[in-house]
Each structure stands twice: as structure tokens, then as C-alpha cells.
Nucleic acid binder design. Sequence first.
DNA 1: CTTAATAAGGACTGAAGCAGTCGGATATCC
DNA 2: GGATATCCGACTGCTTCAGTCCTTATTAAG
Lengths: 153, 153
Amino acid sequence: MLKLTKKADYGLMALKYLAEHPETAALSAKDISEAYGIPAQLLAKILQQLTRSGLLKSHAGMNGGYALAREARAISAYEVIHAIDGPFFITSCTKGANGCELTPSCTIKEPLARVNDTIAGVLKSISIQDLAEHEHPHGSGPDTNVLISLTLQ
Amino acid sequence: MLKLTKKADYGLMALKYLAEHPETAALSAKDISEAYGIPAQLLAKILQQLTRSGLLKSHAGMNGGYALAREARAISAYEVIHAIDGPFFITSCTKGANGCELTPSCTIKEPLARVNDTIAGVLKSISIQDLAEHEHPHGSGPDTNVLISLTLQ
DNA sequence: CTTAATAAGGACTGAAGCAGTCGGATATCC
DNA sequence: GGATATCCGACTGCTTCAGTCCTTATTAAG
């Protein structure tokens, strides 16, 4: 139904939280889970995934935790979602790999692939920094204005 | 994972097929299901949903079937998806109705709501006619060029 | 060196949604 | 009345998601 999983939501929230606390060397999964009321063990697994994907750096042991692997401006929402939920396709019949079982009857996937690319483009244009800045009430920072051109046919 | 259900896919395919056969008064669920290799009874339920939503007109009895309730140009992909899959929200925590259980800790939904609106805008800008025209190899019809402006903050 | 805090990761469960089927009821045309 | 349709509720199998449990490895502090 065109919905992000909760895991992706949690992941975005966690990265946003990290971006908002740049002064601290690292924050533990417990810290973040308590800040948002997210199940700690679930969030831990998400953060581990993000670490494997190179978006976070982790440090075990006391005073360990997680920190952004790059600056918040250089991490896009797309990367986070992709790392957690895997590659997404708006159509159930993916165009790549094994292809669509209905091929060639499914004549709809090609136009929708463009929609897919458009959505991906939007998500790529949004950084964790954008999410973090948005927190602060109003009037700060320049607008992030994104223009997308979708051409059918 | 940001994916349309197969039902929505089937619905789009069916409406596209109807748009490609404007000469016939009505096409039965069986006709369409055979054209695409879709389970007939499943497609029937989908077409019934689209009828209830006012996108199709149905006619029982012999030589009955379904026809577009409006011209193909006036039916958007968004309407089809919405009729079948219901209202979609990219975030698991919907902003409306019961709200987010995590409120106010979930500070991410507001920026993503804009993304949601953008996606909806893209889907609203694509008509069944666009999908049907795309079928014909190339060079026909004007490009459908859509500009979307997404403003964060 | 011991202990506590932390990440890492596999296995499992319950719940929900999706895809598809079955059976029957109603409407329409011949 | 029979053939062809739509209409609609109930049901099943399957997959995925959300979350938990348990164990192991790593690191810093005392």
C-alpha cells in the first residue's frame, strides 16, 4: 500500500536524532530508543543494519554507541530506506532480475517505472540534515526546493 | 516497502485495457483476465471495487461487462490506486484520524507528509489515457510533462 | 582482571495483510 | 428457463512485518 515499514521510520528518526546531537561522540541504541519510545532491541537491529550499510559507525563497549558515518547533509533519506527495506519498486512485478511473470502481458510496468524513479529522486534529494533542521520551529535555514521533471512516453 | 499491491496493478492494467478498446460497449471480467492471464475471480472483485468507486460502469447479463465511467483522460492512476488499496501514507504513522501513537516523539512524519503529497501529485497527474497511449510504440501524442515542486521547511 | 555496558546476530513467535479460491445470490438477455 | 454476467461474503494459505529472547563478542572503567 505504498508504505514505509516501521523499521524505516525508526531508522530515519534515529539518524535525525544523531544529527541533532553532533556534540556527543556516540549515542547508544538504548539512548535513542528511550528518546522516542521505540523497542530497544528492535532499534538495535536497525542501527546494526545501517552500520553494515556504511551510514553509521559503531563502537562497542562502555560509552560506545553509534555516530553518523558522514555529515548529515550527505546522507539521503533514500539511502536509509534502501538500507533497511531493500530496493523498492512501486510495481509488484520488478523490471529487473527475474522480470515480471506476466511478461509481456504486463504493459503497465514501464510507465510506472518512471514514477518509481521520480519517487526515488525525491527521496534522494532529502537529507537527514533536512529532517533535523525541520525540527526547529520556523524561519531557519533556506528552503530546500526540489524540481522534478517526469516525462511520460 | 513502498510497493503497490498486485490488485492495484491488475486494476491499472484492466482500465488501460478498457481504454484501448473504446469501440466495444463492455468487456467482461473474463475477457480482461484472459487477455492478461490474471485470475478471473480476483480480477472480478477488483472491477467490482472500481465500480463501487465510480470509475467503472457495470452491466450484468449476457453481453454485459464493464466500461469506463469517464473518458480515460479523466481517470488518474491515483484514483485507481486509492479505490483499490485505500488511502496511502508513506509513513506508518498516519497524520490523520487516530494520529501517531508516538506523538509527539515522532518528529519525522511532517517532512515525510510532504513527500507523500508529492508522490500523490505525481500519480494524480498520470491518467489511464497516458498509460494506454504509452502502449503504442513511439512518436504518438505529446509528452506529458509534469513539474513538481517540493518545498521542505 | 573483573565487571558492566555496549554492539552483533541468530532463532523464534504472534499478528497482520495479501493473493487467491469457493460458493452462492442477483441481474439481464435470448 | 437457461446461459452469461455482475455482486458479495467467507475462507484458506502464504508472506511479511514487528517484536522478543538468548547468546556471543568487544571495549572501557575500576
